[in-house]
């Protein structure tokens, strides 16, 4: 029982990271129809930023973490203006190849700046492990879950109850109608990129103390974040949250009870199976599809 709880919490921790990354995919997908292959690099940069702020500059966590979030937003905006905007008129496939190029540039750049070795980052809070249902939980795990919960709550409020949030949603449902209704569509798209970068960087900052920060961690995280988004139905944010947690827990359990060497194969397997049987996602809200 204690072991099971341990595995589930380990899974949940990774799960929220996948969930945040998945939401990052969705935001850009909804705004532009593009699958962003540099999404994982946004996460990696978040981890690297946290390392820099905390281990190099020795700033306290309550400054570092929000700063990581802001820097991530900046990365998202730069990415839109530098890569997506110049290419979008050439078609979606060109933009996708562009995001692949950008991911390689970011990865190669990070390797030059931060080196090839995995970097250790101190936990945001260093308290003793907490006992829960017989399992002892690392406090970092609780920090990850809490910060994510706060971020999700803010987002839920933002998209559900503010004019700006609704405007962004309107743009993704029907850009033309939104434009006619006076929504500045361009600015909403930029905002989507900004949020996408910020959330992914936050995910990277949260995970860095658990998995270490490494220049090539992005590819795998991108695959799993995408898997989370697909489970939830590409474009559906609550779906991606559930999908990420589901994938994380499955991974945690299979690593615990089966083999950790093949843990990374699971996301791929799930991805293929979902695309095979329910390409619209496991969690759909029963509304008409977009045509």
């Amino acid at each position: 029982m204690a072991q099971l709880v341990q595995y589930i919490f380990a899974g949940l921790t990774m799960g929220v990271i996948y969930a945040l990354t998945g939401v990052g995919f969705n935001l850009i997908y909804n705004a532009t129809g593009v699958i962003n292959f540099a999404q994982g690099e946004f996460v990696m940069l978040g981890a690297m930023f946290l390392y820099t702020f905390q281990e190099v500059l020795h700033w306290p966590p309550f400054i570092s973490l929000p700063l990581v979030f802001l820097m991530g937003g900046l990365v998202g905006v730069v990415f839109e203006y530098g890569v997506v905007k110049p290419l979008i008129r050439l078609g979606v496939i060109t933009v996708i190849i562009g995001t692949i190029g950008a991911s390689v540039v970011l990865k190669g750049g990070a390797m030059l700046v931060w080196g090839k070795n995995a970097l250790a980052v101190e936990p945001l809070i260093s308290e003793k492990p907490v006992a829960f249902l017989g399992a002892s939980l690392n406090t970092q795990v609780l920090v990850v879950l809490m910060v994510t919960a706060i971020a999700v709550a803010i987002f839920w409020y933002f998209f559900g109850f503010t004019i700006l949030g609704k405007a962004i949603q309107a743009c993704s449902v029907n850009p033309l109608a939104a434009r006619l209704a006076g929504v500045p569509v361009e600015r909403m798209i930029t905002l989507s990129f900004c949020f996408s970068g910020a959330l992914s960087a936050l995910a990277g900052g949260l995970i860095a103390p658990i998995t270490l920060a490494e220049y090539d961690m992005g590819t795998m995280l991108a695959l799993k974040g995408f898997c989370a988004a697909i489970i939830g139905g590409l474009g559906n944010n609550p779906g991606a949250m559930v999908g990420g947690l589901l994938l994380g827990v499955m991974e945690g359990l299979s690593a615990g009870y089966l083999s950790s060497g093949y843990k990374d194969a699971l996301a791929f397997l799930v991805l293929i199976l979902v695309l095979f049987w329910r390409p619209e996602g496991l969690i759909t809200r029963g509304k008409g599809e977009r045509v």
């Binding site: 699958i35 292959f37 979606v92 496939i93 996708i96 590819t219 795998m220 991108a222 695959l223 995408f226 898997c227 697909i230 990374d264 194969a265 996301a267 791929f268 991805l271 293929i272 695309l275 095979f276 390409p279």
Partner: peptide, 21 residues
């Protein structure tokens, strides 16, 4: 087979995953 029946660029992500596996 499953990815190319769908509209969009799922193949890219699926092959990325397969390459890793």
């Amino acid at each position: 087979w499953p990815t190319l029946r769908l509209k969009g660029h799922y193949l890219a992500m699926a092959t990325l995953g397969l390459g890793i596996i």
